[in-house]
Write a protein that binds this DNA or RNA. Structure first.
Lengths: 108, 108
DNA sequence: TTTATTCATCGTAATATTACAATTAACAAA
DNA sequence: TTTGTTAATTGTAATATTACGATGAATAAA
């Protein structure tokens, strides 16, 4: 099918899954890392850094914007992207909390 | 295409993306949470808990095993699953490090 | 006005993912 | 040996994702 049954999961589970998607492709990891390392918001030189077509980079940026973890400021003819702190911190908290719920136990 | 160009990314970026995939579907998040909450390793009652067909659950378990974040112990006719601590901690470290590299700056 | 630059969007092709029914495999118990 | 139970695997259908060329929109500069 390829169609996730979101209705049978909690809102939290669906949100975590969505936030994880921001990191679930190496190109998006690379984009996020670039946006962080160049403290100033990088624009389309992402295309130069990544060996991907401009349309492909734009598509990944769109997905990151949909999730909310980055924001873009139009500054014609350029667009300036950067991490969106509230959502970044939301992800940090959500994953941090999830990771912390596991306490190693002898098992199986 | 649907075919990720893994060769143009670093090993670290590809690994983070792979680890993120463990959390990038709400069913897998639910499975991981169940494996954690029932400290004893749950087996196929995952199928009862999740409103998903057995084959679907098995497929998600296979993906989680591929990533390495869970392990299964065959205990016929049952299989006992649990979190694989080293990989869980690898993910915790990897995401923790990534989250910490971002320091909020005024931007755009 | 024309031209150049940057980036989003559209269209398209190929592969991946999600989901499930049906089957198979592996074993315990009768 | 036969039967029952559990879970993996297979086959299949439908949707999603990834990637890119081409086009379009928006604006600055000439």
């Amino acid at each position: 099918m390829g169609l996730t049954k979101t209705e049978i999961f909690t809102q939290e589970q669906n949100r975590i899954a969505d936030l994880a998607k921001a990191f679930a492709h190496p190109a998006r990891v690379a984009i996020l890392q670039l946006l962080i390392s160049r403290k100033a918001c990088v624009c389309g030189d992402l295309v130069d850094e990544l060996e991907l077509a401009q349309a492909t980079v734009s598509q990944h940026l769109k997905e990151l914007k949909r999730i909310g973890i980055i924001q873009g400021e139009i500054n014609p003819p350029r667009v300036c992207y950067c991490i969106n702190p509230p959502v970044w911190e939301e992800a940090q908290r959500a994953f941090g909390a999830l990771f912390d719920t596991f306490v190693p136990v002898t098992c199986c």
